[in-house]
Design a protein around this nucleic acid. Sequence first.
DNA 1: GTCTATAGCCAGATAGAC
DNA 2: GTCTATCTGGCTATAGAC
Lengths: 203, 203
Amino acid sequence: MARGSFREHLLRVREDAIISSVNHLLAEKGFDLMTVDEVAADVGIAKASLYKHFASKEALAAAAMVRVLERGAALLDELAARPELTPLARLRAVARWALEQQLLGEMPTLPSQNSTLRAELLGSKAYVDLLMKSSDQLGEWIVQAQASGDIDPTLPPEVVLYTVFARACDPVPGFLKAGGQFSDEQIVELVLRSCFDGLRARS
Amino acid sequence: MARGSFREHLLRVREDAIISSVNHLLAEKGFDLMTVDEVAADVGIAKASLYKHFASKEALAAAAMVRVLERGAALLDELAARPELTPLARLRAVARWALEQQLLGEMPTLPSQNSTLRAELLGSKAYVDLLMKSSDQLGEWIVQAQASGDIDPTLPPEVVLYTVFARACDPVPGFLKAGGQFSDEQIVELVLRSCFDGLRARS
DNA sequence: GTCTATAGCCAGATAGAC
DNA sequence: GTCTATCTGGCTATAGAC
């Protein structure tokens, strides 16, 4: 390995550590309450050094979001490569992953109202591309699941798509975890059931 | 009416105007992005005057939350007084109300992670009492709806309760509204259906 | 690229006159 | 109780030495 690429490797490892810290802090406190000082302390470097890697707090958050989307996209690829799974099973697996990540404290939560942050995200080609690619893949499965009669065909596909996405910031798992009477696995199972099967009894 | 009570009336009217502003700003921007200066400007008084009515920004938010809970409790009372409604219909009406309030920009959203705010809310007897009273009423209807076979009896009642509560901060209505191809009424209907009937098709 | 130190700003809260 | 003016602290971001 050439010296240059070795240094690049070290750089990427460090930036990955930064993004991991940001990811956890975003999941724990959200964007507004997360401070750059905390990130620096968590990574173990000086704040000024952070700004050599990322231009702003928004850029930090955007990087964390891109990494989450990359991991989500990787999951979609895995699921797409398993022909034994029905489209419905794939959608369920995606929702399950979002819930699991959230319970593990690995799902960053962003305030959708912060306009500077929105601008940064929408200005990031990596973010927008990943989001579109994932939406397209999910949309395909949704249409297929509706055609086969597994997903309610009278629901507009967007409703199904957003409902799956929304599991990433569903407050119900947090409430149930705070209650303390269910394991994480049980919580995931219960929320998945309430989402896909609904609150109403099935005859 | 005595002069004292007239002054008290004026005071309450003013405080109600303050709480209305806070309510809208909380719904629009959330707690962290809402500034006390904005509240003062919106009400049309000086910031220092605000602090004569409420001791802190957290107290402002708590007052807004209490008023929302009061309105919710009033709805519960109305629903309880209509014997023709099934428990399921009542639960649906509550979820519908939460969605409608949210689409109208009347549902304040709080960051559940902000500890100073949590402390203020949990320290407010009015807030805690209303929350408990409402939860009890809803819990009663849930148990009844499960007994009659309308709500899935295999779901723990807490899951149903939290799922209904969560409609107040569901991001799906906002996404659908941003999409621009559904009316508010259609959005409420679609989200209600996905919540109660689930994404999966019903045979 | 890393650090210490600090600039600059903004928001929550208060002082004090009226 | 209302106002103007100000204090205070914390946060983002940067300067400049090494």
